[in-house]
């Protein structure tokens, strides 16, 4: 009886692992195959990789899209970390009843679905376009600006600041460090793990963001990776090998982050529930 139970546990885990990995396997193998072979269900690596690379470069501006996505994700991450950690620190270190009320009001914004904000934001950036076209509709800046601050990230930093050794600050004050100096010279260097985890969360969600760029970006030169994949996927005569290659390239950065920074990745997930 116990043996049977053990076998079924391993059976379930093996089958589930195969199901989890199969789409990755399919994607990588298909990237090396001709379109016909992919649609006929070939599951062995082929020899068409270099042709697929050539065709991909010929049909879409994947280099430009990678660059756009990278610019957006890096800018968002740097600004988001700075703004949210300042706030998380402020709410916790300079705690007062009034600030706690403000904090709770900010948290309410997590309940607002993006679909409800999309139209007003689009109209807002339409107005901005008339005054300052460089940050208006169809610019990379317009993707970054509304996504810099999330209540989640402020919450994340506040939760982690609870464990920050506050004696460090008192000591700094004794040594005559200014309040802003305490933040930049003591808090930031001490909280490296928190920043790393927050950077991963923000980078991933910015890299993968789809709906807002779809709304606000129009010209092909501003296309991001998710927009490019989506338009490739919905083309009328799809070249499956080429599409799968594009997806492999799009998935690579986040997969590498996961494999090399797994510790911070999980810390980022857990940091929100401490």
């Amino acid at each position: 009886m116990n043996k049977l139970k053990q076998i079924s546990v391993y059976g379930i885990l093996i089958v589930s692992s195969i199901i989890s990995i199969f789409p990755f396997f399919f994607m990588i193998v298909s990237a090396t195959n001709k379109s016909v072979d992919v649609s006929s269900g070939k599951l062995l690596p082929g020899t068409n990789l270099f042709t697929n690379i050539k065709n991909l470069l010929a049909t879409v501006e994947i280099g430009q899209a990678l660059l756009n996505s990278a610019i957006i994700a890096v800018t968002t991450t740097v600004l988001a970390l700075l703004v949210a950690s300042l706030a998380g620190y402020g709410f916790e270190i300079y705690r007062s009843r009034a600030k706690d009320i403000v904090f709770n009001i900010l948290l309410l914004s997590m309940m607002i679905p993006f679909a409800a904000l999309m139209v007003p934001l689009f109209r807002m950036f339409g107005t901005i376009s008339e005054i300052a076209p460089v940050i208006g509709i169809d610019t990379l800046a317009s993707v970054v600006i509304p996504t810099i601050t999330t209540a989640f990230l402020i919450f994340f930093f506040r939760q982690n600041t609870k464990m920050f050794p506050k004696e460090l600050l008192e000591a700094g004050r004794m040594d005559g460090v200014s309040e802003l100096g305490l933040f930049f010279r003591i808090y930031i260097p001490t909280m490296k793990t928190t920043y790393a985890a927050a950077a991963i969360i923000t980078f991933m969600s910015s890299w993968n963001n789809y709906l807002w760029p779809l709304v606000v970006l129009q010209s092909p030169k501003n296309q991001t990776i998710p927009l490019l994949i989506s338009s490739l996927g919905s083309s009328y005569s799809p070249d499956y090998g080429v599409i799968m290659l594009a997806i492999v390239i799009a998935t690579l950065p986040t997969a590498l982050i996961f494999f090399f920074l797994q510790k911070y990745f999980v810390a980022g997930m857990m940091g929100s529930i401490k």
């Binding site: 692992s17 990995i21 789409p23 994607m27 998710p226 994949i229 996927g233 997806i247 998935t251």
Partner: peptide, 15 residues
């Protein structure tokens, strides 16, 4: 089992 969580929503949808 965790690996799917690293994919982009658009990318895995197309797959």
């Amino acid at each position: 089992i965790f690996l799917p969580a690293v994919t982009s929503l658009v990318a895995y949808s197309v797959i």
